[in-house]
Design a protein around this nucleic acid. Structure first.
Lengths: 124, 124
DNA sequence: ATAACCTACAACCAAATGGTTGTATCAATT
DNA sequence: AATTGATACAACCATTTGGTTGTAGGTTAT
């Protein structure tokens, strides 16, 4: 079972930054099966091998991909769990609107009984 | 009804970049009710008014917030629809893993009948 | 052993980012 | 009309980013 620790602000910063580049997102997509080496990946982008290497390093630092040695090459594999955390961060941002709906309901409905709204509680 | 047009790579770049800053994410959170002006928002960050103004501009450019004039101030309101699009972009990235599951199933099960896999289609 | 291939990493550069201060505009108040 | 408050925007600066080339270290194959 994955514990899914809470991400710090800095973590979320880095995670979204890693995702804010089309080349990096493409690398994540192509690395799902974990059977492509860095040089193989690099073949399909209009930039140097070293540039692609840097992109992979950015993804690796935030845990969006991992590298596994096979012979003289490193196979890149993307990690769905980290992407799931990015989604979680987005969801937590979106939660504020749910809270707003809650508050609006409370204004309209006096029986909104805020003492047992366990559904809206954040799990710490 | 919101049409939810497809985002270009550059759009997703800008969207995730806008979200890759803790101050900007906080502004989005605080602007849910749309009752805070730029200067009111700026009061709570350890930086100049102009810096916060720039952050709001970044959010505005990608549609994460809009500004509405009220007297001499501009009220900032965050736009849930744009955040929903960010989530959609994440989901489309995550789809590749579903595709992988699909392909693995096809290897194990000869009757995977790829000609009528309507279940895997995303609703727009 | 030597050659060929894959990766790592440093040095360098241009452009973008995130901050600053200063000045101008515009609306509201007096 | 003059003042005050809120915003806009330009100029500037330091740091980061995304690219480059070059060099060096392992691993495989000949």
């Amino acid at each position: 079972m994955v514990v899914s620790i809470e991400l710090s602000d800095a973590d979320v910063d880095r995670l979204f930054h890693a995702l804010a580049d089309a080349t990096r997102r493409d690398i994540v997509r192509r690395s799902v099966d974990g059977d492509l080496s860095v040089s193989r990946l690099a073949e399909d982008y209009p930039m140097s091998f070293a540039a692609v290497q840097k992109h992979v390093a950015v993804l690796e630092r935030v845990g969006l991909v991992t590298k596994v040695r096979r012979g003289r090459e490193l196979l890149v594999r993307s990690e769905p769990e980290t992407l799931r955390r990015a989604r979680l961060a987005l969801d937590q941002l979106a939660e504020v609107w749910e809270g707003r709906v809650q508050r609006m309901a409370a204004l309209l409905d006096d029986d909104s009984t805020p003492e047992h709204q366990t559904r809206t509680k954040r799990e710490g």
